[in-house]
Amino acid sequence: MLEWCKLLRGKRQREHDRTLSINIAGMELRNPTMLASGFLGISQAIFNRLYNADVGAIVSKSISCEPMEGYRNPTAVCLEGGSYLNAVGLANPGADAFSSEIASNPYVPIIVSLVGSSHDDFPKIINKFDDLNILGYEINLSCPHVAKMGMEVGDDPDMVTKVVKTVKSHTLKPVVVKVGIGNVDILDIARAANDAGANAITAINTIRAMTIDIESGIPVLSNKIGGLSGKSVKPIAIRCVYEISKNVSVPVIGCGGIFSWEDAVEFMLAGASAIQLGSVIGYEGFGAFQKICLGLKRYLERKGMKNLTELVGLAHKY
């Protein structure tokens, strides 16, 4: 009860300000900052706390049909300069447990991230969530470190088409497709997703990478190879958002190394309609969303813009 009252109060306090509100792929968000998949994403109580910390929307941890244990630790390694390397191995509680977890979600805007090893996994997962209070789905076609899942699907445009069409035919809710840097040009994958009916594209996921301990000579991640995130991937993510948003009709959600409102602005200029925050949480905690929103608002005011949409893709004209 107390939890509900607190949530309500938080909601009322924040409802009046519309400068940052957006509509993306039919999803009404009070601001463009989303939590990136894999960060803090398994518990309703944490989601409620994020909501009170001004998150625009939450993308859950990628959920598979069955629970997955993921890899042994180390699964996340901090690198110098605001970057991380991770190979969590898609650890997640599975569709059953996670759907019970969020079954009584009050009104936290949750997007469920889906991951599967074949296209017929997806309807089974959607079946568990479609009647719940969620905004939509994000298909993870870009996890770079788990065999037969994520990137292995995302590297094959025909598979992408098949998966997106399957998901679309099983839900009326918006479907976002998350793409990354694999062996196939990210633009081809984004186009395939767009053409198959995706409602938005998230770019990018982590990038295959590795680190080795020089004292022992042993790769640090238990899986040896993992995905790079944080500051070091930002320029690559900016390029991807720029190219994709120029070439597909659906909106793009920018992700990768966003640590400040300045980064957020840069992503929007490149063509992102919304942004996802991940690694920054290791530095700013739950306060990251509020801080970036405040910076964005001040920037808009300074530039004399009334709404965020005016900013999206401005760099395309140069």
Binding site: G38, F39, L40, G41, I42, S43, A45, I46, N48, R49, N73, T75, A76, C78, Y84, V88, A91, G278, S279, I281, G282, G285
Partner: peptide, 20 residues
């Protein structure tokens, strides 16, 4: 615990991160 630094929530108890 996986990350120990408040990003993964594997350590959560309700809305608290035990590591952080």
């Amino acid at each position: 615990m996986k990350c120990g630094i408040g990003i993964c929530a594997s350590c959560c108890i309700e809305d608290k991160l035990v590591c952080k």
